[in-house]
Design a protein around this nucleic acid. Structure first.
Lengths: 217, 217
DNA sequence: GGCATGATTTCGGCATGCCGAAAAAACTGC
DNA sequence: GCAGTTTTTTCGGCATGCCGAAATCATGCC
């Protein structure tokens, strides 16, 4: 039970608790993985038998220490590959996800570490997500979700969720990239969108976008 | 029917006819792939249905033009990856095979070509095997199997079979590498081994080795 | 020509991952 | 507290690849 499928499941579980720590339900997992609920239930049972997750029937799913280790390892692999694709192979940051999704299961540890070393052992990936160290250590920057930032808050963009490639392109066009300094001007009443000042000018961002961007605290 | 398994089968079939053109039998395929005969028979039937091979029951297996295209593509991928591992990641030439075997199925065309370009589009891999071009063109050097070379023949090593990593290490120790100049001194009667002069001195090579080395014709 | 031997194929089975439909449990609002 | 909805689980099924055992074919030898 150390298949690529298992790696994908624990990574998805880990992913869910990485930036907002709530337990994950099977159906949320199914949505994220694009699988049927029944499939997830079955697989979770196998993962539990393999000691990678805790799960009581009809309850949420949580990683065991061992499952967490595997997940962190997988996250490291994914983000190292993404960084490598962008820095060495001319990929745009919205193009790397699918390729990394496959490669993270295919590279040996030796090759992965060689690639990481050739990049200078980076600590964050092109979206600002922290890259866990080879020993499993994770350093996460203090950050506030843009949607939760009060008016007047100012800070550099520390992370942009890689969930939606189209959004990544929209943000790139709007001049909002990693390390850009943003100032929260306020929420427009009833529209649900926020006004934000970037270097290039003022931008209105909808709630989806405001929940995809993290600012330095 | 374009699975990684299918890619492995057509590659194995192609491989067999690359340096000595004889048809492949299912059992030879099974041996090379490390599978049961029955498994190969079943898979060959599926490959035939998919138009990748010709096969009449109880007969040999041959690639269709389409199967050959797929095989050549796969060979290119494998050899580009091997070259990359040796040149950029400090692998020894006897260590690359397993990693390449996995990676050749996982890289996108885009990434593979980017890697090939970064290597200067090499035309042969660390063992001397020709790397097919991206368009499927294969250039093969004129070569004689050491075992078939007459006494007195002299020529550079053009290719060393990558079948047996232990043999590759033995040869490296003996100073026999790609491009080394060898002279065939003759066959030792009854022992079945050949005497060969290399730069570093005279070496006795057994029949296995003599069938793994090709010299420039 | 007949027959033994070895290669090939057929057959039932197994493991992994996936699905949809139906049953069971858990929440919800009133 | 209870009925309706939603979530989770169970169940039968399917596809891919693999296996060993048994049946079938091909071939060479006498």
């Amino acid at each position: 039970m150390r298949s690529t499928a298992a790696e994908d499941y624990v990574k998805a579980i880990y992913h869910h608790t990485e930036w907002q720590p709530e337990p994950v339900t099977p159906s949320q997992l199914a949505t994220r993985l694009g699988l049927a609920n029944s499939t997830v239930t079955e697989m979770v049972k196998k993962l539990a038998a393999a000691g990678l997750v805790h799960h009581r029937p009809y309850g949420a799913v949580e990683l065991t220490p061992e499952g967490r280790r595997l997940a962190v390892r997988q996250v490291r692999r994914h983000r190292v590959v993404e960084t490598w694709l962008v820095e060495r192979h001319g990929y745009e940051w919205d193009e790397v996800h699918d390729e990394a999704e496959i490669l993270e299961h295919a590279l040996s540890d030796r090759l992965l570490e060689s690639i990481a070393a050739s990049l200078g052992d980076p600590e964050r990936d092109p979206h600002g997500d922290p890259i866990p160290a080879a020993d499993g250590t994770v350093r996460r920057p203090d950050a506030v979700l843009l949607a939760d930032a009060p008016a007047g808050h100012e800070g550099a963009v520390v992370r942009i969720s890689d969930e939606d490639p189209a959004m990544l392109r929209f943000l790139a066009d709007a001049g909002i990239a990693l390390d850009a300094r943003l100032t929260v001007l306020g929420v427009k009443p009833y529209s649900g969108s926020m006004q934000v000042r970037a270097l290039r000018g003022t931008v209105d961002v909808g709630p989806d976008v405001a929940r995809a961007i993290w600012l330095a605290a």
